[in-house]
Design a binder for these strands. Structure first.
Lengths: 215, 215
DNA sequence: AACTGTGAAGTTTTTCACAGCC
DNA sequence: GGCTGTGAAAAACTTCACAGTT
């Protein structure tokens, strides 16, 4: 992601807000009303000062002596992140991964809705995932353009990912979540984030003790 | 992840090595032999100095005036990351997501193999994903312990994730990839990494222009 | 008494810039 | 001429510490 476009709030701080939001939602589900930066930090493995500072960039939503009202903070963070509305998302690729994403029900109450899924395999097209039907890749441009789709998730085989991204970019999309294990080349104003479990696994492996060395 | 255990190499630099490895693999597939830090950086959207510095922590694998031999660098990075061997991984949860992970064929040539999958749904247990069979959750402890499994991927519903993590930790696992949208509480010596697409989406949404404001 | 908001201090990470090498 | 390896400078980020508020 080539981000730091914004005025002056560190991208890395913005990146933590979704984690705060996620944790706050769980607290709310446990019928909690108030939380301190210390408790929130402990749950997330983050220092309390960092949380206060991050929230402070956006005005500070807490009460001295008390902490943060969970409902209020959730509401404010959703507004800051622009997820108080519902973004329409297109998924490209309806294989194992694309279909798992499309069937996942967790998007909606966090600000997103998968509204379209595309694939180029004839046996896939027409399949129903919950409320949506798999469309042909031939319809990609028409659907993305006509609906002013801003976010796409790419879940196609790695050798098709760049071509698919190029097609989406031409349609005016602004942001891509790429599940294919390849760095995409896109114009500077397009936001790209990557989800590649193997990157995480390889990162972790560095810190693991090799069994043989242990013995 | 509570990482900085290591001697003195920044965790964040280690985290970039898998990206370098991934990009190098693509270059190799295009029959390239040599690459400069500048070209590699351009592909990844990273400064060339950063790449040189990262590689330098591990000794510096380049040749002045020339660049980096791709084959050699791949080999060295795999060794550094300990992915020149094959780690056995267990997936917990065989729903949409768990089965997509388990069927994915991209793990093997990047240092990992999904060797076991568990679920608690009777209609799931016994299903075959490629070469592996879905096992009952009742067998979790026995399998993890007997095989000294070090890495598990959690792909169960959010309300079961913590309990599943607890069970895995007792079995002596060292690292968790958690796909459930919740922060896990685990002992300090367990490495946890999170994969939650909605965290990425929410992060991106912050930088998107709201349609209404554009007009 | 408990907790936030926030400048200032401290630390980490990135970038610069150039000597040394091919 | 082109490129790496690497100290030193710059920038970014985190933590401290405390005034101020409830």
């Amino acid at each position: 992601m080539a981000m730091k476009l914004s005025n002056d709030i560190p991208n890395i701080a913005v990146g933590r807000l979704p984690l705060y939001l996620r944790a706050l939602t769980h607290l709310k589900e446990q019928d909690r009303n108030i939380v301190s930066s210390r408790e929130l930090g402990k749950r997330l493995g983050i220092g309390s000062a960092q949380i206060r500072k991050d929230l402070c960039y956006f005005g500070g939503f807490g009460k001295q002596g008390t902490g943060y009202h969970i409902d209020f903070l959730i509401e404010q963070l959703k507004e800051v992140l622009q997820v108080d509305k519902e973004w329409q998302v297109a998924v490209i690729g309806a294989g194992n991964l694309g279909s798992a994403i499309s069937r996942y029900e967790g998007f909606v109450n966090r600000g997103f809705r998968i509204s379209w899924v595309f694939d180029n395999q004839p046996d896939c097209i027409g399949q129903e995932f919950g409320e949506i039907t798999v469309l042909s890749m031939d319809e990609l441009e028409a659907v993305l353009c006509q609906n002013h789709v801003q976010i796409v998730m790419i879940a196609v085989p790695v050798d098709q990912a760049q071509a698919v991204a190029d097609r989406a970019v031409v349609c005016g999309i602004c942001a891509i979540i790429n599940y294919a294990p390849i760095s995409l080349e896109v114009p500077d104003d397009i936001i790209v984030e990557y989800i590649d479990p193997i990157v995480h696994l390889q990162h972790m492996a560095y810190y693991l003790q090799n069994e043989k060395e242990v013995q």
